[in-house]
Amino acid sequence: MTPLQHYLFLAVALFSIGAWGVLARRNIILVIMCIELMLNGINIALIAFSNYSLDGAGRGQVFVFFIFAVAAAEVAIGLAITIALYRLRERMSVDELHEMKG
């Protein structure tokens, strides 16, 4: 069996790459895609912990199903906001959207 740490290192790598994309890229849709990558990293960590826990195995998997549903809702709302912004402002870059800057 692969030890637990390897799965956790994979999860950390996926989370960090997703965070890099969220911080560095300009396009809103790509930022949403990178948020999905971060959520996938968290899911890998939860399922790995669920697989190796001595009591309460399977609880982590239930949390993963909740994260699936919340991620689907988040993508739907995020892309709806993106399309509404595109229709109103014709802009797709996060650094061009500074209407709420003080």
């Binding site: 030890p3 669920s50 697989n51 190796y52 195995a57 399977g58 609880r59 998997q61 239930v62």
Partner: peptide, 19 residues
């Protein structure tokens, strides 16, 4: 880690549905 490399503990679909 209490249990870092032993047998898999994830339950099957019936166990997930139970939880």
């Amino acid at each position: 880690y209490m249990n870092s490399s032993s047998e898999a503990m994830n339950p099957d679909t019936r166990g997930i549905a139970d939880i």
